[in-house]
């Protein structure tokens, strides 16, 4: 049984580790994109303009209401259609392909950003109006007020919600195996089919996901202490 999991030609260890790295890099690549998009959507939801608020609210309602798997398929099949339609305006026979990794990243990032926007929005509510006014009275521009006054506090307030979303994201990356990306679950699935030891390999996959969540919990604890360093007396 151990031979099946060994590293090298006789075992599946190297394939599984390669899958693990795809899973991790997908989650890590999605995170900054999702965070940034979520932040701007939260800004739009807080905007004074009703049309912008409405557009942002439709976005969060739609992508928080759709199954992640469906969003993934919509992006995976829809994006090439859309890109080819646009490209077709300039080119007679458009044939653009979309990378699985990119499709997975876009789909997961879209869902992540919709949830992150809600987290950011409730964090925005925790920041007193006086903080903005203090920034303005110091002569800071809007961008600088954001950068030096608001965002550092916002991150502290949003961190519990965001770390929850990160743990969810790690698990959701498993869905990309459905569009053929060789992530942890797909690699263990191939190993399971070839070796006929499905329980062993899917068990190993589950253990790796558990390991990732445990490691993330440690990292989150560290970041939490970092953002709260100004709170200590």
């Amino acid at each position: 049984m151990l031979e099946l999991l060994s590293y090298g030609d006789s075992g599946w260890g190297d394939e599984i580790i390669a899958g693990l790295s795809v899973t991790l890099s997908l989650a890590l690549a999605t995170l900054p994109f999702g965070l940034l998009a979520g932040f701007f959507i939260a800004l739009a939801q807080n905007s004074q303009d009703a049309t912008l608020r409405a557009a942002a609210n439709i976005y969060t309602t739609v992508f928080r209401g759709l199954p992640e798997l469906l969003t993934l398929f919509i992006v995976f099949y829809g994006l090439p259609l859309f890109l080819n339609a646009v490209y077709g305006l300039f080119h007679p026979a458009p044939d653009l392909q979309i990378n699985n990794f990119l499709a997975g990243m876009l789909a997961l990032g879209t869902v992540f950003s919709a949830y992150a926007a809600e987290v950011f929005q409730s964090a925005f509510r925790g920041i007193a109006k006086g903080q903005y006014e203090a920034g303005t009275s110091l002569g800071l521009s809007w961008i600088r007020t954001m950068r030096f006054v608001i965002v550092p506090q916002l991150l502290r307030l949003a961190l519990p919600g965001l770390s929850n979303l990160w743990l969810i994201l790690l698990k959701e990356t498993a869905l990309v195996s459905a569009i053929g990306l060789p992530d942890l679950l797909r690699q263990t699935g191939i190993a399971a089919r070839v070796s006929k030891e499905a329980f062993l390999f899917f068990g190993v996959a589950c253990l790796f996901y558990l390991l990732l969540s445990i490691l993330s919990s440690f990292a989150i604890g560290y970041i939490e202490r970092f953002t709260q360093r100004g709170e200590k007396i």
């Binding site: 498993a174 869905l175 679950l185 499905a198 996901y209």
Partner: peptide, 8 residues
């Protein structure tokens, strides 16, 4: 992940 549990 739920999907891994389902496969298991």
């Amino acid at each position: 992940p739920l999907i891994a549990q389902t496969f298991l």
